[in-house]
Amino acid sequence: MTIKEIAKISGVSIATVSRVINNDESFRVSEKTREKIMKNIKKYGYIKRNIGTNINRFKVGIIKLFETEIEYKNTYYSMFYLTLENRLKEEKIKYEIFFKKKLNNPKTLEELKFLDAIIIVGETSDKFLLSLLKYNTNILCLDNDIKIDSVDSISFDYKLSVKKVIDYLIKQGHSNIALITGKYDKKDFRAKYFEEITKKRKNLKRTILKVGEFKKESGYLLTKELLKNKKNIPTAIFCGNDNIASGVYNAIYESGRKIPDDISVIGFNDNKISKFLNPPLTTISINIDNIIDIGIKLLKEKIYNKRTFTCKVLVQTDLIIRKSIKKL
């Protein structure tokens, strides 16, 4: 029998069987589970196959945190998933897509046990990840700087990326800055670090935080609201993503103001539309290709080479300077 078949009979994940077979001392498993696995191996036999010639037998699960409609509106994540799926196909790694909302079904959760790994893209709670670890111990988080020791993660330095934006705006002479962002399950990291960093910048006169959704309509409505207070109009608006920035542009122009002459705008994510806005949008670029390439490498190390230690990787972000920021 193969390791996958032993895992299925034993009611555990493939990773669990692998670690028991390889006497992984860093892996905690109950003696009862260990005995059950070894009993099944003895009873049915276990054939170790040559990984180099049987890579097509591996399969991973991609857990999508958002519904298709939300993903469609947030081009960053739609591009992320498309790139990820294409890379898995190139590596001949089979995959199956699961939606977070459907994981309350016990039968669906049981299916996770028989995957070689689980990939999650985007920010999610520790509570959700800990619940998944009960079904599969091989989890890879992309675009999420997760702190759980046993979970591999590849992301970017959240705090440093926000600091880059604030320091650049201050350098350009802006002292009245607003952040318009969104949130999913928890407070957006941009909001968290915006508040933390701006408190320490004594040369800032005023900061404003508006939280809605990560979409164009939200950026438009929150900017309209922001511009109603004529005594407190910011000289620069930092947007949680480039979709929000697109809505901010519309609201500013609708008010009779110009970008960047009257209000400067800076985005986040550098999606495909940002360089075609008028004027082209200054933004933070996250290298999706690098995150996914490193993720695939870590995935293969875990699946093919049985790596037992955890990896945490932070990828550099870049400030893409275009024409939406005015120097005061």
Results as ranks from 00 to 15, higher is better:
237 I>W: 04
237 I>R: 01
238 F>M: 11
238 F>P: 03
239 C>V: 06
239 C>M: 07
240 G>D: 02
241 N>G: 06
242 D>P: 12
242 D>T: 08
242 D>V: 11
242 D>N: 03
243 N>G: 15
244 I>S: 09
244 I>L: 06
244 I>V: 10
245 A>M: 02
245 A>Y: 07
246 S>A: 15
246 S>W: 14
247 G>A: 08
247 G>Y: 02
248 V>R: 04
249 Y>E: 00
249 Y>L: 00
250 N>M: 14
251 A>L: 11
251 A>C: 12
252 I>P: 13
252 I>G: 09
253 Y>M: 02
254 E>L: 13
254 E>A: 15
254 E>D: 15
254 E>W: 09
255 S>N: 11
255 S>I: 02
256 G>I: 05
256 G>W: 12
257 R>K: 15
257 R>Y: 12
258 K>D: 12
259 I>T: 03
259 I>S: 03
259 I>D: 00
259 I>M: 01
259 I>E: 01
260 P>Q: 10
261 D>F: 10
261 D>S: 14
263 I>P: 11
264 S>W: 02
264 S>E: 01
265 V>W: 04
265 V>F: 06
265 V>T: 05
266 I>M: 03
266 I>F: 11
266 I>S: 07
266 I>Y: 04
267 G>Y: 11
267 G>E: 06
267 G>T: 09
268 F>I: 07
269 N>V: 10
269 N>H: 14
269 N>C: 14
269 N>L: 03
270 D>Q: 08
272 K>L: 08
273 I>E: 13
275 K>P: 07
275 K>V: 13
